[in-house]
Design a protein around this nucleic acid. Structure first.
Lengths: 198, 198
DNA sequence: CCTGCAATCTTGTCGGTGACAAGTCAGGGG
DNA sequence: CCCCTGACTTGTCACCGACAAGATTGCAGG
């Protein structure tokens, strides 16, 4: 029989949660099922997470930390904003379970300090990448940051919800999209003048 | 006492669902609670929607229909792609409950014909707006469509999850973002050449 | 008129779930 | 050696979704 003390229950439950969410989506996950998967009584996980929301909060925080690391890693390598955007999308696709939980405040304890700290770290990594953009351009920096975040986040979300053609390689398509909007060697998407009126 | 037959239970339950989701998010809604709000026994709604997923599927379909109408309406008025994007964001903010359910395939009966039809109608409205963009430009149409959808969807999602500065007027900010990327009278966001390497 | 039928809604029930309370067990500091 | 704290279990409660069976209503066809 297994020992009374699991040893690393917290880790194990988080890992099981990732599996369960990957299989059935964030809605189809229950603390009791996770406990069963890990081989622990139904109230075991409660001791580590307090709540179901507590579990998902921990998962989201872990996700933001991973995202921050991924972004910082590619920032050290390339300085290319396009590549940074692709890294964001790659994270969302590869760590789908984390990503799906990170932007669902209705599932969190939104005031959790670990969560806020990790989120800010990821935000800083992204904002830092925006710094590398258009120094010559005044179009204010905050708007540029919001635009950049919007496009990569929107792409990632649409991909993960199956709204983009499933035949493609997401990273390749994301690269084309980012290059079209932010790239240097690509023509930039613009409205034809005669149709434009604001 | 209320009559045995409600008269328009389906409508009433959908409306109650919108309220409940607006208050507690899509996770915090139960068929039984909706039944209570409407003044009907706990299994009343089941007859109209079959399932909880059936309810949310109907809500999502209604949402896509409303979105398609909104997009087509502004398309008739302006021909401006920027305005079309703002209309998308406006819909997401004003019909938050619908929007939050529309892109959650894990909550749907994904094969529901009404849902697919409404989604395609909305997709066509958006794609039609992209047609108005850059005729002079070859940067292939599909990539342009994905880029446009990504940016408005990303912005809407980030706003609704509270990740953008809450002090602002979302439509105004969305307008600035869209104008920065797609507008004609605004400088276009580009990477500074020396930092760009793909 | 009235009879039977189908749609609508109710009541009752089952297994599963989240939260909580109280108990049990292991190990390290006094 | 003891006990104290943290880790886990057992037991319970209210709620939820799904299903089955029954009650009620309106209405079509004779």
């Amino acid at each position: 029989m297994p020992p009374y003390h699991h040893g690393d229950l917290r880790r194990a439950v988080l890992a099981a949660a990732v599996d369960a969410i990957t299989e059935h989506g964030p809605a189809g996950v229950s603390l009791r099922d996770l406990a069963r998967r890990v081989g622990v009584s139904h109230a075991g996980p409660v001791h580590h997470f307090k709540d179901k929301a507590g579990l998902l909060t921990a998962l989201a925080a872990e996700g933001f930390a991973l995202l921050a690391d991924a972004l910082n890693a590619t920032r050290e390598q390339t300085n290319s904003f396009v590549e940074l955007g692709v890294a964001y999308v790659r994270f969302a696709v590869r760590h789908r379970a984390h990503f799906e939980v990170m932007f669902r405040p209705d599932l969190h304890h939104t005031d959790d300090p670990a969560l806020t700290e990790a989120r800010e770290r990821a935000g800083a990594a992204l904002a830092g990448g925006v710094e590398a953009l258009g120094e010559q351009r005044t179009g204010d920096r905050r708007t540029a940051g919001v635009a950049a975040w919007s496009i990569v986040h929107g792409f990632a979300t649409l991909w993960n919800t199956g709204n983009l053609a499933p035949g493609d390689d997401p990273e390749e398509l994301a690269h084309r999209v980012a290059a079209m909007l932010f790239g240097d060697d690509q023509p930039v998407l613009r409205a034809s003048p005669e149709l434009q009126q604001t």
